[in-house]
Design a protein around this nucleic acid. Structure first.
Lengths: 210, 210
DNA sequence: TGATAAAGTGAATATTAATTCATATTATCT
DNA sequence: AGATAATATGAATTAATATTCACTTTATCA
């Protein structure tokens, strides 16, 4: 043999993958998943169409990757908010406070993220990627579920099925945000976002409190 | 001139339109909007592809029509439940009771409607039709909003933005039902539907109550 | 430098589904 | 029956993308 992959080639491979990943994320953030075509990605990344297929099995894989990458940071941030790490147990706020804060952060980030958040939460995409969205929403539900359960155990919240409550919270958040998100995504700045988030917060709080 | 539309031809026209409408609704109820193509509709209705275009402007129009027809009865039923007609004011149940009942009926019908309900509430479809779903959900939100507002005015519910609460309720319902709906739609009968609906009901009630 | 393997290319092809349109059929009226 | 108009037909066309693949370029190593 007379060819072996080396550190340099591996580095380039990683760089190319990152280039495609970044570009794809940009395209989605700018125009939603509709704007992400193999051709548009190739053009914007300045590579040939065929190159895409050296790095991703097919179009679906690109979408899935973008979805995961786009949502990972969101989920992480929200989780950190619900269950702050590096805080001594005695300094940990009560569940009610953390739930409020988590809802606020979720909403505000969604509203600030414009098109990307809309794409992740609500934009219609093809069924193969839809499975990813389900996971995305479930990841959130999982976080809320743990928080609600902790609240129930500590007597802060009424006894309830924390899975259902968590799913309902995610649904309530998504549904109330979709309208405003669509408007914000289209550039018509909207006032009253603070009030909106307050209303949602109050609604969810009341739903789970004792 | 030597041709004039007559009652007979008009009747046939209506019959044909109904045939296409029924067939399209059947296809969606059976396989979701994905299964509804111009070709599949033509085949199942036993007409030529071109015929579809004599009755509908384009594919979108077919989808929109199916969506409206499919949802009309649902919305009507739910509305009747929230605001029963032909009941003397003094016999009208309180808002809390009506809200509970409305949520129960909404959920149960969705769960019983299998694939159609899933298609209307959650199945990803193309953007043109998506606008219709937004209207569909808003129709529900409108009903809940009126009911919540009435409850607030009567002091049964806490003071709140009834639009936000209503939207949140619709979101909570849709989100909690999608999972079970998908499972029911695939034939894996699910137990615990009653409990699920009870949990959702309790959640929403707690959220709006004083 | 020549052999080997991987990465890159993009025109050609495949896919999927909507839409059109020249033609045929059917209904109506005198 | 003949004239007229609406309705029906479905093969052919269009459209929008995804996917392939024969070929070129680049990198590695003996």
């Amino acid at each position: 043999m007379a060819y072996r992959p080396t550190e340099k080639t591996e580095a380039r491979k990683r760089a190319q993958h990152k280039l495609l990943s970044d570009t794809a994320l940009n395209i989605v953030a700018r125009g939603g998943f509709n704007a992400l075509t193999v051709a548009s990605l190739a053009e914007e990344a300045k590579v040939a169409i065929g190159t895409i297929y050296k790095y991703f099995k097919d179009k679906s894989a690109v979408c899935t990757h973008v979805f995961q990458r786009g949502s990972a940071r969101e989920v992480e941030t929200v989780e950190q908010c619900a269950f702050p790490e590096g805080v001594r147990p005695e300094d940990m706020a009560d569940c009610r406070t953390r739930l409020e804060e988590t809802i606020r952060v979720f909403s505000m980030r969604a509203l600030a993220g414009h098109k990307l958040a809309y794409a992740l939460i609500a934009e219609p995409i093809d069924p193969m990627v839809e499975a990813e969205r389900l996971k995305y929403r479930q990841a959130y539900a999982e976080i809320f579920s743990r928080l609600v359960q902790e609240g129930v155990d500590k007597g802060e919240f009424r006894p309830q099925d924390s899975r259902v409550a968590a799913t309902a919270i995610v649904g309530a958040l998504a549904e109330t945000l979709v309208g405003p998100l669509a408007r914000v995504a289209e550039g018509q700045e909207d006032i009253g976002l603070e009030e909106l988030v307050d209303s949602i917060k109050t609604f969810c709080l009341a739903a789970v409190l004792a």
